[in-house]
Deep mutational scan, measured.
Amino acid sequence: MEVRTIKVFTTVDNINLHTQVVDMSMTYGQQFGPTYLDGADVTKIKPHNSHEGKTFYVLPNDDTLRVEAFEYYHTTDPSFLGRYMSALNHTKKWKYPQVNGLTSIKWADNNCYLATALLTLQQIELKFNPPALQDAYYRARAGEAANFCALILAYCNKTVGELGDVRETMSYLFQHANLDSCKRVLNVVCKTCGQQQTTLKGVEAVMYMGTLSYEQFKKGVQIPCTCGKQATKYLVQQESPFVMMSAPPAQYELKHGTFTCASEYTGNYQCGHYKHITSKETLYCIDGALLTKSSEYKGPITDVFYKENSYTTTIK
């Protein structure tokens, strides 16, 4: 009895394709271990004539594949690729409408935090270190965002349907971005203890939790000093293409032309909904596939993004 075979390709990165001759009487799992086709788990399936010449994702289970996976995804987590594939199996079914010149995501599976993050990423200057993220990001900007969303979920250790947080998501993504040249110098002034300067680099240099107003941050924000008295913390120097200011959701007025974009969060910790506000020729609110415009805006804002380049204080 002759062994019926077909020729397929296996890959971990969709760049390096490895030619395989597979036995049609055995499952993919018996031949390769966990195997995925377009995100779908085909591990328990036997090869079919229609699979001839198709590319299958496999887990990096030998040295060659491990090197290829690390170079593309910059992670050695053995569960990463499987999590990416199972997320992709959902995100490829989502709709990605162009809204006001940006790629958004039609609401499904509690994905409003991903839509808000995706919209924000198209408006701030950011370059990702893992080629996987950078490639998928370019495709997302062009309207094909399924891979990018699935990668975000995998890097953030999230599953489809789980509630997510924009600030946490951005923080994970910033860790995989090139923020080497970003720098922030802060000064804390206390009447009792004097003053202390701190220099922050990388992710810490672009994120701040405690106030939404970048102007206020430049002037000074009140913080408790270690001595128990009130101290003032203010920005001395900022070198970065953008800054992200966050605070627990509270009524906040966004003035046209003073910011790049913002995240609105309605609801409580267990259950809520994100919308995205962007400042173009007027203010726009993007909620999944829905767009509304207004000249002014007041609502429960939790993150505001500002364009920056270089700032030095005039406070002496």
Rank of each mutant, 00 (worst) to 15 (best):
A145H: 00
Y96T: 06
D303A: 00
K255A: 12
I286W: 04
T103N: 05
S294T: 14
G194Q: 02
S213W: 02
E168C: 14
E125S: 08
H90V: 11
S79K: 13
S213G: 00
E308C: 07
Y36W: 15
G299M: 02
Q230W: 13
Q98R: 14
L121T: 09
Q216P: 08
N147T: 13
L88M: 09
A115I: 05
V160L: 07
Y297W: 08
T35F: 04
D62E: 10
V206I: 10
A140H: 03
D77I: 04
D23W: 10
G228T: 02
G164Y: 00
A205P: 05
K298P: 04
T211C: 14
A205C: 00
K233E: 11
A177K: 02
T19K: 13
S294A: 13
A136W: 06
K219Y: 03
V166L: 08
L254Y: 03
R141C: 13
T91Y: 03
E162T: 08
M207H: 08
H48L: 12
M244F: 03
P224W: 06
Q30T: 15
L254G: 06
K106T: 12
E144S: 12
N100D: 10
C182H: 01
H273C: 02
Y234M: 09
A250Q: 15
G161F: 04
Q123G: 04
H256I: 14
G210P: 04
G288W: 00
L114H: 04
A132E: 03
H176V: 05
V203R: 12
Y208P: 00
K229L: 11
E125Y: 08
C190K: 01
G33V: 05
T226F: 08
I105L: 05
C285E: 14
V221E: 04
T116H: 05
H90M: 10
E215M: 01
K46A: 13
R141Q: 13
S50C: 12
N61V: 10
G228C: 02
I301H: 02
N129P: 02
D63Q: 07
K307F: 08
K293A: 09
Y172N: 14
Y72H: 11
M24V: 13
K92Q: 11
E52D: 12
Y96P: 12
H48R: 12
E71Y: 05
T313I: 12
L59A: 12
F128N: 05
T120A: 14
G101L: 02
G82R: 14
C227L: 01
A177S: 08
D135G: 08
K92Y: 09
A145D: 03
H276D: 01
V203T: 08
P224T: 14
A132P: 06
G228E: 01
Q238A: 01
S263D: 02
Y155W: 08
E71P: 08
L81D: 01
L179G: 06
S86N: 14
E168H: 15
N100G: 15
G82Y: 12
L81W: 11
K127M: 10
G288K: 00
L119G: 05
Q197P: 05
M207L: 00
D109C: 03
V304Y: 00
V189H: 10
E125M: 08
N129S: 08
E144I: 00
F128S: 03
L212K: 00
Y234L: 06
Q197A: 04
Y72M: 10
T282P: 04
V22S: 09
N110V: 00
F148L: 13
K127C: 09
Q196H: 14
L179F: 15
F305V: 13
C182T: 02
L118C: 04
K46W: 15
I152G: 06
A289R: 06
E308W: 04
F259G: 01
L17A: 08
P224C: 09
I124V: 04
K307W: 06
N187D: 08
L235Y: 02
L102S: 10
A177V: 09
T211Q: 07
A262K: 05
Y297C: 07
T76K: 10
R167G: 04
L200H: 14
A247S: 07
E2G: 13
T27P: 15
S181R: 13
L153R: 03
L153W: 05
Y36D: 00
